[in-house]
Structure formats: C-alpha cells, structure tokens
Design a protein around this nucleic acid. Structure first.
Length: 353
DNA sequence: CAACCGTGGGC
DNA sequence: TGCCCAAGGTT
C-alpha cells in the first residue's frame, strides 16, 4: 500500500461512503457485518474472470448447491465439474478450479491469506490473488481489473492504454483505497466501474469522485481509457461431424487441451484452422454417408469467427476411432456441451436450442 | 510477451 | 451488423 497524502484520503472516503450506500447484494458477497466465505468468494472470482455478473448468476447457485465446500469440490470427478461448467466458456478455468480445490483441500489449512501464496494456486493470477486476499481476509492488496483500470484512467486522465502503464494504474488505485477497509475499498472501486463509471455513458452526476475527476474536467470521460488497437478477427470455416448409431448413441471426441480442452465435443475439423469446404471430408472421423445440413452454424470466439457445416451420418458399427468414444444421446444434456457443440446438436435436432 | 482461450449482451 | 466489453490466466 502507498501511504496516502492528506488529499488522497478524501476521494477514498467518498468512494467508501458511496459503496456503503449503493452496493449491490450479490450471491457471493457477504452481507454487512458478516464475514466473507473464502470458498464462495474464490468460486465467484474464478467465474467472473472475463464473464459478466449476469452470466455468472445463472451458474453460481447451481454450482454452489452441488458442491457446498471446497472439500466437496475437490472430491468430485473432473468430468462432473467440466459438465457443470458447460456454457460458461474459458474451460481451462474449470480444470484449474478443480486442481485448485484439490490443492486447498489437501493442504488441510484452507485458502491461504497472503496474496503471494494465493498466486501460486492454479487459476489464480495477479488480480484474483489480490481480490481474494483483500475481500476475504481484509489484507491491503490492490486488485486491478478492467473496472479499476477504467476508473483510474478517467480519474487521472491517463492517455496511454492501461496495459502499457500498469504500475501507474496500480499506484493510483492504491491511493483510492482506505487502509482501514481494504476489502470494501477493492469492491468499491469495482462497483463504481460496474454501476457508475461504465464504459460508454458514465453517470458522472452520480459519481462520488466527480469533483476530482480529471477526465470529467476535460469534458471527455468516455474517451478514457485509451483503446488498444485490435487486429481484425479472422473468419474461419470448418465442419462438425455428428455420427449416430441407431437412436441412442453419438460419437464424441474430447480435445485434450486448447479450444474446448477436456470438454465434450463432436469430431470436427481443427477449428482453429480455416478448412475450406472442399477439404473438410478428410477430417471426418470415419467413412460414412455424410449428409450436410442446410445451414451452417456460426459462432464467434474471442479471436476468430467460425462458420461450420454440420454433417450427420448413421452407422451400425460398434467400434469407435481410437480418439473417439460412443456416448448415450440421452446424456448429452447431463454431460454438458460447449455452446458451439450445442448449436450443432440443436441443428441436427438432437437437443433443444 | 503476444497469442490463445468462450460466451452473451449492448449499442 | 460488427465491435466493444466483461471481477483474467496461462504459455
């Protein structure tokens, strides 16, 4: 923590007062006067990585009721955790979540308090380590997420993209925190970014920091933070192969890592490569009378857009290619599918959209 | 360290 | 519609 000069105390206090009055009740947030549960906060922080509060709310309660403690989660089979995670995206998070639960449960000491110790656990990076240490254990850690970057960049009218001036952002964020209440200070900064200092049209009239905000003084709060140049998103083509055996079994292939790593998936062309229609057939899992569905499925990932033709075929063969396995059609929902694969299954009339 | 890794919603 | 953004981490 940076020792504050007298002038920086004021915005920090104003921010805390605003937070005390306006904070949302969230499923993972301790109520006033109650102490936070490390497991609940950790689980929420992992889910919230690059994921909106609205989306997390749809998955959080079900996850928590299925595994109420970190020990419960540690005992669960990884496949169950991945299935429960289906639809949330960034599936490496689920594998790291499970590995982290096992590490914490094995330690017999619960979650560590210190930022450095938290940082060593799988799936916990700089932001999450600081957030957990501050929120759960009220340690004076500075957690810088996208919200905090935006609030600080505006408050100080910082012209460079946040990634290029990370140490400065961190120092300025620290100056906006109260030494007396680190956990609430961290949450207050993020809450301000989520509710008031929002990306497009910030509600400066309702902002507790407006009287000292440099970007507002310049008349252009929405111009901060500076945007990074983004390369254009490539468009890729490919195919997804759904092989049916009678009415009850479907062929699956589980990518070991990378895109959809560990997740239930149908055989496909390598989706991270562009495969023109004329070349997709050589990626079919076996020879069969493949029928292409009329409309391709489209799906937009973070770093590329995909248009995939869905092929369907029937077989009576009981054997499966070495890297594939047969799985019951009835288990599709229970086992969980990534959204792209769910789209393909829905296209083929196998599940509801 | 830049690339990779999902998904949904807002405008 | 296409782009931006969301409580980022890993390699």
């Amino acid at each position: 923590m940076i020792k504050p000069c007298a002038r920086s105390t004021k915005p920090a206090e104003a921010l805390l007062a605003w937070y005390d009055a306006e904070r949302r009740e969230l499923p993972w947030r301790a109520r006033r006067g109650e102490s936070p549960d490390p497991y609940r906060v950790w689980l929420s922080e992992i889910m919230l990585q690059q994921t909106t509060v609205a989306t997390v709310k749809q998955h959080y309660e079900a996850f928590l009721s299925r595994w109420a403690t970190v020990e419960d989660l540690a005992c669960a089979p990884l496949d169950d955790v991945l299935a429960q995670w289906a639809g949330l995206g960034y599936y490496a998070r689920a594998r790291n979540l499970h590995a982290c639960a096992r590490a914490v449960a094995d330690s017999r000491a619960g979650f560590p308090r210190e930022e450095a110790a938290l940082r060593r656990l799988p799936g916990i990076g700089p932001y999450t380590a600081a957030a957990i240490s501050a929120i759960v254990f009220d340690q004076p850690c500075v957690a810088v997420d996208g919200n905090v970057e935006r609030v600080v960049a505006r408050f100080h009218a910082i012209g460079q993209p946040p990634r290029k001036v990370a140490p400065l952002i961190r120092e300025r964020a620290s100056a906006l925190m109260s030494r007396a209440r680190p956990g609430d200070s961290v949450q207050a900064l993020m809450e301000l970014g989520a509710l008031i200092c929002v990306p497009r049209a910030p509600n400066c009239a309702a902002c507790p920091l407006s009287s000292s905000c440099a970007a507002l003084r310049l008349g252009a709060p929405a111009d901060y933070p500076a945007r990074e140049l983004r390369p254009q998103k490539p468009r890729r083509r490919g195919a997804i192969f759904i092989l049916r055996r009678g009415d009850e079994a479907l062929l699956r292939r589980l990518p070991p890592r990378g895109l959809f790593g560990g997740m239930n998936a149908f055989p496909s062309t390598p989706l991270t490569q562009d495969v023109p229609a004329a070349e997709v057939s050589r990626f079919a899992p076996c020879a069969a009378r493949w029928r292409a569905l009329e409309q391709p499925v489209t799906h937009v990932f973070t770093h590329f857009a995909l248009e995939a033709t869905v092929f369907v075929a029937h077989t009576r063969a009981k054997s499966a290619p070495s890297d594939c396995r047969w799985a019951a059609r009835a288990n599709l929902d229970k086992e969980g599918l990534p959204t792209l694969m769910r789209k393909a299954a829905a296209h083929a009339g196998l599940v509801d959209a």
